[in-house]
Design a protein around this nucleic acid. Structure first.
Lengths: 341, 341
DNA sequence: ATGAAAGCGCTAACAG
DNA sequence: CTGTTAGCGCTTTCAT
C-alpha cells in the first residue's frame, strides 16, 4: 500500500495525498477528510525510507551507555526514555561495554541511519570525534564527565568533590587506612573520583599507599576480587571506598566471606546510591548521584539542541547537578543524627 | 558524498559503483580496486534510506522487554545483544513497561522501519497481532510463556512446574501457611506461577486462602507493600513465595523492618536467581531461570527464522529450557546437603 | 565488464 | 486548491 494507490482510489494526485500528510491545512477540508478516511481504512503508513530520503529527520535519538547490568546506568536510561517518549522520539539503546571500539562502531551505525541526536554516557570519544558527529548533523549531549575538552552540552556531577567529601567523612569517623577500589575502565569519572580520594588524604596529611589503590572491573565480582587482594595485605585497610555501589556490594560480600564485621572491622563507602544499596546488610553508605534526573536533564537538553538546530542557533550548556552524601550503616558514623535513611 | 560523485571521480557509471557494493565479483578487479580505494578515501557510506527503499533488509532486530530496572530482563537482553552483535545485527531495545498499549506502539514503529525481526519478552500481544507482524515481513520469536496460543518460535521455561517445585520445597520444610506475592501485570508467566503454587498446595491438601494471594507491582517496593499487608493479617503466613527476586527483596526488607527473622519467623523463596539474590542477608532461595541462555537461544532462533525466510522455509520451534531450584538460606531448609551455594 | 535508464515511495517546487 | 514533474540515492534489468 503506497501513496500512489491511495491517490488512485481517492481520485486525486499523489501530491495531494502527500500534502494531507505534511501540510494538511493546504488541502480542501472535504478532500482531506476523504483521503484521511481512506488512509485509515487501508491502514496506510508512509514508507519510512522514502520519507528519510527527502527529509532529514528521523525522530530518533540514541543513548549510549557502557553497561546495562549496572543499575546506575539503567536509571539514567529510564530518565532519558521517559522524556524522549513523551516528546515523540524513539530511543535506540546502545551498550558500549565501556570499549571505545564498540562506541565508535555504534556511532558509525547511528550516523548511517541519520539519527537526530545522541546522548553519550561516560563517553570515551575525543573532541575530534565529537566534532565529526556534529558535522554529520547529529546533535550531541554528554552525560557524566568526559575525557574530551570539547564544549558539548553536558550534564554531570562533580565527581572529584563528591569523592573528596565521601573520603573526608571516612576520615572524620576516625579512619586512617582507607583503600580505594575503583573501576579500571578509562572513564573520566573514575579519574576524577581518584583525584577526590587523593585530595582528601593529602589534606589530612595521610600518605598515599600504592597497595591501597585497586583497579578492577566495575562489577560485583570486581569488588570481590579487589577485596581479596586488600585482605591479603600485611596492613589491611580499615575502610574501603569504592567508585560504584556495584563494587561496594562485592566488597561487602568478600568481607562477609572473610567473617569480618562491617563497619567495625572494615567500613565501606560506595558511590551512586542505586536502589539496592539500602537493602544491603549493613545498609550501604554512599554518594547519592541524581541518576534519574541526569537522564531527564540530558534528554531535555538534547531535544533542545535538536530543536534549536532548526532555528539555526545552538545553546551550549553545562549542567552540574548536586550529589549528596548518604550516610548509612556501613561506614561507621559517629553522628547518628546524619542518618537520613 | 553520494554514489554519483564516486562514479564521477572514478570515471565510471553509478551502476558500476553500485555493483562493487553489492556484487563485487561481477566487476573487473582493477576497476573494483580503484573504486574501493576511492570510497575509502572519500569516506563514502551508502545512504541508508536509499538502500532501504530498494532492499527489504535492515540488519536490525528489536528486543521488547517489559522493564529495564529488573535485572532478570536485563540478563536476557545481554544474551540477545551478544549473539545479535556478533552476527552483525543492530538491536533496538524497547521498554514496554508491561503495558500492551506501549508494546503495540513500539511494534508499529518497528514495522514502519522495516525491522528484520523482533524478540518479544513476556509479550501481551494476541495471535492476531503476531500474525499481523509476520504478514508485514517481520520475523517473530517469543521469550517467556505467552498469552497467545499462536505457534511462534519460542523459548521459555515451565513456570508452572518450577513454581510447583519451589512451593513443594517450602512444604517439605514443614511450612503450611505459605503466602504468594505475585506480579500483577497480566503476563502469562505470572499466571503459570500462580497455577504451580495452587497445584502444590492442593496436592498437599492445604486449602487456598484468598488473603494469602497478594498481587503487586513487580518491584522491590511492590514486595515491601505486599508484605505489610500480609503482616497485618490475623493469621500471618510463615513462608512467602514470590514470582520474582525483586519482589522477594522487598519482602525481605519489610520483614527485617518488622524485626522478623528469616527464615525462622518467615521463610522466603524468590524466582529468577538474579545476581543480587546471593548477596541478600540471608541469601535468597530461588528458582534459577537460565536468563542469559534464554537470550542467547532466542536470538539464535530469530536469526535462524530470518535466514530461513529467505530460503522460503520456516522452522517452528518451541525450546523449553530447564530451571533449577536454588536452595539457600532464606527458606529454612532441613537438608543442608542441598545447599549448593 | 560496463553503461543507460527505469523505478523504489515520497516531497516540493512550479504551474495552473 | 490541485496536478505535473523533477528529484532524493541507490539497485537492477537490459543492452552493448
Amino acid at each position: 500500500m503506497n501513496i500512489k494507490e491511495i491517490a488512485r482510489q481517492a481520485g486525486v494526485s499523489v501530491a495531494t495525498v502527500s500534502r494531507v500528510l505534511n501540510h494538511p491545512e493546504t488541502v480542501a477540508p472535504k478532500t482531506r477528510a476523504r483521503i484521511l478516511a481512506l488512509m485509515e481504512q487501508m491502514d496506510y503508513k508512509p514508507n519510512w525510507f522514502a520519507r528519510g530520503l527527502n527529509f532529514n529527520k528521523t525522530d530518533t535519538i540514541a543513548l549510549l551507555i557502557p553497561n546495562i547490568m549496572n543499575p546506575a546506568y539503567v536509571e539514567i536510561a529510564e530518565g532519558v526514555e521517559s522524556v524522549a517518549n513523551q516528546k515523540g522520539y524513539t530511543v535506540l539503546l546502545c551498550i558500549t561495554e565501556g570499549e571505545d571500539i564498540k562506541e565508535r562502531k555504534y556511532i558509525q551505525t547511528l550516523i548511517d541511519r541519520h539519527i537526530d541526536g545522541v546522548i553519550l554516557v561516560s563517553s570515551l570519544l575525543n573532541s575530534d570525534e565529537l566534532d565529526h558527529l556534529k558535522q554529520q548533523g547529529v546533535a550531541v549531549v554528554l552525560i557524566g564527565e568526559n575525557s574530551s575538552n570539547s564544549s558539548e552540552p553536558m550534564v554531570r556531577i562533580d565527581c572529584c568533590a563528591a569523592a573528596y567529601e565521601a573520603v573526608q567523612h571516612l576520615l572524620n569517623c576516625g579512619h586512617k587506612d582507607i583503600a580505594l577500589v575503583y573501576g579500571k575502565a578509562p572513564e573520566m569519572e573514575n579519574k576524577r573520583k581518584i583525584e577526590g580520594y587523593c585530595n582528601a588524604l593529602k589534606e589530612a596529611g595521610i600518605p598515599l599507599r600504592e597497595s591501597y589503590l585497586i583497579p578492577e572491573e566495575n562489577t560485583i565480582e570486581g569488588g570481590y576480587v579487589a577485596t581479596r587482594k586488600l585482605l591479603a595485605l600485611k596492613n589491611r585497610p580499615r575502610a574501603i571506598f569504592t567508585t560504584s555501589d556495584l563494587l561496594a556490594f562485592g566488597v561487602i560480600d568478600a568481607l562477609r566471606d572473610a567473617e569480618l564485621c562491617i563497619p567495625e572491622d572494615v567500613a565501606v563507602m560506595g558511590f551512586d546510591n542505586i536502589r539496592m544499596s539500602s537493602l544491603m546488610v549493613p545498609k550501604l553508605s554512599t554518594v547519592a548521584k541524581p541518576l534519574h534526573k541526569m537522564g531527564l536533564s540530558g534528554a531535555r537538553l538534547l531535544l533542545d539542541v535538536i530543536e534549536s538546530r532548526r532555528n539555526g542557533d545552538m545553546a551550549m550548556k553545562d549542567i552540574v547537578l548536586q550529589s549528596k552524601l548518604k550516610i548509612r550503616k556501613s561506614c561507621g558514623h559517629k553522628e547518628r543524627i546524619k542518618e537520613i535513611f
